[in-house]
Amino acid sequence: MGKIVMSGPQNVSLDGVVQDPDGAEGFELGGWFVQFGGSDLEEWNKIALEEALRAEAWLLGRKSYEFFGARWRPRAGELADRLNSMPKYVVSSTLDEPDWNNTTVLRGDVLTEVSKLKQELDGEIVVPASYRLGHTLIEHDLVDEVRLAVFPVVLGAGERFFGEACGKKAMRLVDNRTIGDGLAFLTYEFAQDA
């Protein structure tokens, strides 16, 4: 049975904002990934490679799929090679012909499709960046673990990692470490018995 992990790593500000870390979406507070990641981004890249190598597959929403596909398809190197070759599943009702190799489009009810995927795959099914998809999966108790790269900035506004609809969810810290000198990498499991 597969394990759904929100990671890649999942980049968040201290106040939980995940919106527009690279500034490409035009959010007025976007671009915080490079601005506040600084010299720690080389170490962050090592974590991203670790995450990709241990993943069985990636699960993405359509917008994240398009973003990552455009970014990684033309690249080479260990991380690009892994991302380009690994199985990818994209939840979309509008994507007809995926243009990133090893991609399967999941159509129909997202909860049913992701539940089936968890049954069919062994290992980690990593959900990178796709926070809207993540909100739905967390709300319906389909996410097993979250791995957060916490950036040293408070934005005060923007889309949050945990949406309001998620409700109260007990979690247990299972690992923590630093990335470089300024980023925290936190791993939490959902406490099913709470």
Rank of each mutant, 00 (worst) to 15 (best):
G2C: 06
M6C: 13
Q10C: 11
V12N: 02
S13K: 10
G16Q: 06
V18Y: 03
E25S: 08
L29N: 10
L29D: 07
G30M: 06
F36Q: 06
W44M: 10
I47G: 00
A48Y: 01
L49G: 01
A57T: 07
L60S: 02
G61K: 04
G61H: 05
K63N: 12
K63F: 03
F68C: 00
G69Y: 00
G69T: 15
R71G: 01
R73D: 11
G77H: 08
A80S: 14
R82K: 15
S85M: 02
L95W: 06
P98S: 08
N102F: 05
T103P: 11
G108C: 07
D109Y: 09
S115I: 08
Q119T: 13
E120D: 14
I125W: 01
I125D: 01
V126Y: 03
P128K: 04
V143G: 04
V153T: 07
V154R: 05
F161G: 01
G163D: 10
E164K: 14
K168C: 01
A170S: 14
M171G: 03
M171T: 12
N176R: 14
R177L: 02
I179E: 04
G182V: 03
A184C: 07
F185N: 12
F185Y: 15
F185H: 15
L186M: 12
Y188I: 09
D193P: 00
